[in-house]
Every structure is written in structure tokens, then in C-alpha cells.
Design a protein around this nucleic acid. Structure first.
Length: 296
DNA sequence: ATCCCGGTCC
DNA sequence: GGACCTGGAT
């Protein structure tokens, strides 16, 4: 219905974002769709400040999908450097190959086509459609989920994720006009990152003010299931995988097994990490001939 | 020294 | 539901 909280929240966020936001490279009007796709891959798990310089390098080195597709996947893994979760580099290279071969070197604009690309899930597909092409579609990341949970749901936290519910909740606040919807999509994530933060929300400067259901009900405490905690990094297989890849990134030739066995005291865990890397396609080779990044 | 962040895939 | 990386914040 007209005048609902949903409508008012969506319009208010669009106005707030339009009135002033951080200047980020991928928000410039003439930034290419390929650059936006790369930025979304990098931003999936990595803070803005670390993405900016790396993205600039990638765009200069590989100005289109076909340029990245033309090099071995290992070059993407090497250039990924320390952004973390290097399977994303492999997936981005795979997406570049698919775009070059099946889409005429043009990043697709349809959500369904984007979802077919490796490493592209519900968030990235809609983010690219919305921000590269202006498609009116709900874009929901973890920040948007939290804002929706508070402003619309009246809850302190978002609770367990449900893509279907998230998309419906975001759809309900999206303005009808695509140009306005785009502002709301970008704005709700910015609001969640800078104002409606997880631990110390700055409600005193929030544009939603009394439109927020959580605020008007007196900030009730969260009574849902506790958020799952990430296992510690120190001593994890993730750390061992990171050590192995760091060694392979630094070498232009195959690294002998002896050079890797010194990286970690627990031989069983080292073996397990290497098996995982080989299975993921992040490493090629064997004990006899040594190991490399995937160079073919 | 410890905690925290986060989208995709299996 | 759990695995996956890293560095910055506290």
C-alpha cells in the first residue's frame, strides 16, 4: 500500500545515498561492466581499502574478459596476491573464459546469465546487473540484511540467512523507477557499512530515524539463534593452504616437495592441505616433479 | 593476543 | 552447516 514503512524506507535510503556517499572507483559513471564484475568478486570477502589498488592493477593488465581468459589461471592466482580466498581468483578466471567464449566478450546483463558464471551467486549476479546495467533487482549483502532486519523486521540482528526471504524483503523497499532502485540498492549497503553497523550502530545520524522498526520499539534485544563463529585461523588448514600458495606464487618454476615440507611441522596436515589445493585446482603437480600454480 | 569480517560452493 | 584467507581493529 502507498505510504507503507517499506516504501518510505526505500525512498529515504535513496535520498540519503544520493545526497552524499564515498567515492569509490567502481561507482564512477563510465566504469566498465567488466571492472564492476571484477570489483564484486574482490569485494565478496575483502575490505574496500585492500581491493582498490589491486583492482586498478587488474583492470590495467586485463582490460576485458578476453584478456584475462588468454592467460593461464595460475596468473590470476598469482596476481590475486593476498586478497584472501584465492578460489575466487580461479573462479574469476573461469568467468572470464565463459564471457569471452559464450558472451562475445561482453559481461552479461541478465541475472540468470550471470548466475551461470563460476563464482557468481545470488549477491554478485544482482550486484552486477544493478550497478553495471541499471537493472531493477534486489541486491542483498550482509549489510543490507542487517538494515532490513532492523528497519523493517524490528530485530537487532538478521538471523540465519535465507536468500528467498532476503530478496523478497529487499524487493519490498525498492522504488519502482530503476534509477531510484539503484540508489536504494547501493545506499542500503553503504548505510549498513557506515551507520547501521553490527556492533555500534550510530542511530543518532541515521536517516531512517523513526522509520526504523527496531528503534521505535525501544531496541529490543536479539533473541534468535546465535551467529555462527568462524573457526580460528591460527593452526587451521586455511593457514597451511595460504603458506603453500604464498610459496608457489613467489616461484616461476616448479617447487620441489622438500621446499614445502619445511613450511609446516605437521606433515599430515600439510598433506591434507596440499590434497585440498590440488582438488580445488589451485595447484598442479606431484611429489616427483614438484608443484606449481595452475599454468595450463 | 584475540576478535572480527564475508559470498559461494559442497 | 561448514570450509575457505587475510589483515586490520581492539
Amino acid at each position: 500500500m502507498v505510504g507503507s514503512r517499506e516504501t518510505a524506507v526505500g525512498e529515504t535510503i535513496a535520498d540519503w545515498y544520493a545526497a552524499g556517499h564515498r567515492e569509490l572507483p567502481w561507482r564512477h559513471p563510465d566504469y566498465p561492466a567488466w571492472g564492476i564484475l571484477m570489483s564484486e568478486f574482490m569485494l565478496q570477502q575483502t575490505p574496500v581499502a585492500r581491493v582498490i589498488p589491486r583492482l586498478a592493477e587488474w583492470l590495467q593488465r586485463w582490460p576485458s574478459a578476453a584478456d584475462l581468459a588468454a592467460v593461464p589461471p595460475g596468473e590470476a592466482v598469482r596476481a590475486w596476491d593476498r586478497l584472501g580466498y584465492p578460489r575466487r581468483a580461479l573462479a574469476l578466471h573461469g568467468a572470464a573464459v565463459a564471457i569471452a567464449e559464450r558472451h562475445g566478450n561482453r559481461v552479461p546483463s541478465e541475472v540468470d546469465e550471470l548466475l551461470e558464471l563460476p563464482g557468481v551467486g545470488p549477491y554478485t549476479a544482482r550486484a552486477v546487473a544493478a550497478f553495471a546495467y541499471g537493472v531493477r533487482t534486489p541486491v542483498v549483502d550482509t549489510n543490507a540484511r542487517r538494515v532490513l532486519a532492523r528497519a523493517i523486521g524490528g530485530q537487532a540482528e538478521a538471523g540465519p540467512p535465507s536468500t528467498r526471504r532476503d530478496l523478497e524483503a529487499m524487493q519490498a523497499i525498492l522504488p519502482v523507477a530503476p534509477t531510484r532502485a539503484r540508489l536504494t540498492n547501493a545506499g542500503i549497503m553503504e548505510l549498513g557499512q557506515t551507520v547501521c553497523t553490527a556492533r555500534a550502530p550510530r542511530c543518532d545520524v541515521c536517516p531512517l530515524a523513526r522509520l526504523c522498526a527496531w528503534r521505535v520499539t525501544g531496541y529490543p534485544a536479539y533473541d534468535g539463534p546465535a551467529a555462527v563463529r568462524q573457526k580460528r585461523y591460527e593452526g587451521s588448514d586455511r593457514q597451511v593452504r595460504g603458506l603453500i600458495l604464498r610459496e608457489l606464487r613467489a616461484s616461476e618454476v616448479a617447487v620441489p616437495i622438500d621446499a614445502l615440507s619445511g613450511l609446516w611441522p605437521d606433515a599430515v596436515q600439510l598433506e591434507r592441505a596440499m590434497t585440498g589445493l590440488l582438488r580445488d585446482g589451485l595447484v598442479h603437480g606431484d611429489a616427483a616433479s614438484g608443484f606449481t600454480l595452475p599454468l595450463h
